[in-house]
């Protein structure tokens, strides 16, 4: 691999290699070796043209634990806000000798432009592009599911995962559908019809409009954020109605399987898609997802940058 742009770039074995590497790195970092010298002298640029807390900090922590130099670059306070084009930004980064660029961008496909156009020679890692993909989030979700429910298996064969909420605008959902099904899980999407994307019936998933009938049948339930910033139309009559039909609350938690886990990619709208007691319940692995994110991103950075420079695209 040279870039990580989409889950489609990864074979099943490569995905499992990332999860295994992350598991080993988590074990080392939990123990005595907090810092590894592996990427010493490499420069990683975090190019965030859209707001982010978790992903940016997580990539930064991962890069620093591997001893890479990190340059943070956000839209606010940079020439991006003066209207500099992506190409000019990329060429600037290239001139500064960036070995990798972690990019978050409101436009779907921006990381592909960066990677495909020979604008820069470094690795490009998609940290969320518009409503398209967010591969590192899917990898950390798969890692979290495997850790809790995998019973030592390498993949997620036979596990049932529900993804609930704003599928239409969710890059997390797209990447997760690709990855979880690649790893053998059965995915059910639960959403009001207005929040399902066009063509969803051709995805390898089951679609349901009734959360209560899905809840008792899953091993993991992933709640998605209602993305107010992308809601330019009215997709449901009221927030209260949405929460009543599609929110995770105490009654629905009680209907879950005893071993089922509750996930959310963050940031949460407490009281909308998830109630506070659901978010903070013992079943919730939401905080753990964040710490797993660091290990998974360390694995991604190590596997992309740790070895010999690769010419061209995917090996």
């Amino acid at each position: 691999m040279k870039h990580l742009l989409s889950i489609n770039d990864l074979s099943r074995d490569e995905s499992i290699l990332i999860l295994d590497t992350a598991a080993e790195l988590a074990r080392i970092s939990d123990g005595p070796m907090k810092k590894l010298p592996t990427l010493r002298g490499r420069t990683i640029v975090n190019l965030f043209a859209e707001d982010s807390t978790r992903t940016r900090i997580s990539f930064e922590a991962a890069a620093k634990r591997l001893s890479a130099d990190v340059i943070n670059f956000s839209a606010k306070g940079s020439s991006l806000s003066k209207g500099e084009s992506l190409k000019d930004t990329a060429q600037t980064l290239q001139a500064m000798g960036a070995d990798a660029v972690v990019i978050r961008h409101p436009a779907s496909g921006a990381p592909f432009r960066l990677a495909d156009n020979q604008w820069m020679s470094g690795a490009v890692i998609n940290a969320g592009d518009g409503t398209h993909e967010h591969p590192s989030q899917a990898l950390l979700d798969a890692y979290t599911i495997r850790k809790h429910l995998g019973k030592g298996a390498k993949d997620l064969a036979g596990l049932r995962v529900a993804i609930v909420g704003d599928i239409l605008h969710s890059r997390v959902a797209r990447s997760n559908v690709l990855l979880l099904t690649k790893l053998g899980a059965h995915v059910t999407l639960v959403a009001p019809p207005t929040l399902l994307p066009f063509g969803v019936d051709s995805w390898p998933v089951i679609i349901s409009y009734d959360l209560d009938s899905v809840i008792p049948q899953v091993d993991a339930i992933m709640m998605l954020r209602i993305q107010q910033e992308r809601m330019h139309e009215i997709f449901f009559p009221s927030a209260r109605e949405y929460s009543r039909y599609f929110g995770l609350n105490r009654d629905r938690i009680n209907a879950l399987n005893p071993n089922a886990i509750i996930m959310h990619p963050g940031p949460m709208n407490r009281g909308l898609e998830i109630t506070a007691d659901a978010a903070d319940s013992a079943r919730s692995v939401i905080v753990e997802q964040v710490s797993n994110g660091v290990s998974v991103r360390m694995a991604i950075l190590y596997l992309l940058l740790g070895g010999a420079p690769i010419e061209g695209g995917i090996n």
């Binding site: 295994d20 190590y302 740790g306």
Partner: peptide, 26 residues
């Protein structure tokens, strides 16, 4: 496991990590 500390990492493709298990006594 010595993988992450090798000085020849950049001359070959990245290798999968192997377990590091330090006894409890450290």
């Amino acid at each position: 496991d010595t993988t992450m500390h090798r000085d020849d990492l950049r001359t070959r493709s990245p290798k999968a990590l192997l377990p590091t298990l330090i006894p409890t006594a450290g």
